[in-house]
Amino acid sequence: MRWAGPAALVVALLVPLVPAGGYQQYVVQVATFVLINAGVALAWDIQARTGQLSLAPAAFFGLGAYAYTIAALRGVPLPVAFLLGPLVAGAVSLGLGVVTLRLQGLYFAIATLAFAEVVKVIFKELPLDLTGGAVGLTAPPLLGGHQTGLYYLGLCVLLLVVAASLAVRHSRLHYAFTAIRQGELTARVLGVRVVRTKLLAFVLSASLTGLVGAYATSRLFFVIPEDTFGIGLSVTALATAIFGGVYTTAGPVLGAIILRSLEEGLRMVLREGYLAVYGVILMLVILYLPGGLVSLWNRRARDAAGGD
């Protein structure tokens, strides 16, 4: 499947040029949402490779989004505000990582979930002129809000996440991550610096999530605590990654393309309750295709997902 990546990139580049008549704008919009979901899911996956199930993507997404919005509203040049997104998310994740790195399995998941909920409430309760409280803020758009331009910017953001994922996959880190996932004690005996590696994965993942958060806000033009920090965002991230195939680069991206397009399509047909179909599909994939979609053609991915 060596051609799959470049082919996908070419298709992604051509999306805004597809002659879809009156639906042109809608297609680009859905494609942009796919980029955002893929970015968050892939960033989550990078960290999941160390065996830590984080439920905090929403927190880092939200921190990135708010950092961009608040800075931009105070007159910070937009590109600088944009970069503040990943920086703030990364810095906070460093602190959180140091505190929680001893927790394992479900305990880690719940600690990150609790953290995300606390951050959400803090942003709701902070002074109104800073965060806008429960109503949120209107964010200044990047590139003057030009839809096609923003789509290509989103593509760049996703490509950056993909590059990070591939870099991890093709370096010694891949073996360190995998060893930690399969057994922390064994990894330590083998000479892996477990604490440092886990922290690196956590901060890398959080920074990338913050970057996607800043981007998403520059495209959606608003931040609201309930949505921007919503647990739904974290759950979608892991559902997308597992649906497509965990511990791979292609899996989360493929998962985002299918799940998000499906969601938008169903929304048009059903308007309400359309997520029931989404739930059924998730159940079927877990029961009959536990390695995710990627395992259909990638035996190694199938073994990796089933083997630990």
Partner: peptide, 14 residues
């Protein structure tokens, strides 16, 4: 975890 999550969303949206 994901299986039960799928069951949950299905029930909720039904």
């Amino acid at each position: 975890l994901l299986l039960t999550f799928g069951i949950g969303i299905t029930l909720q949206n039904l």
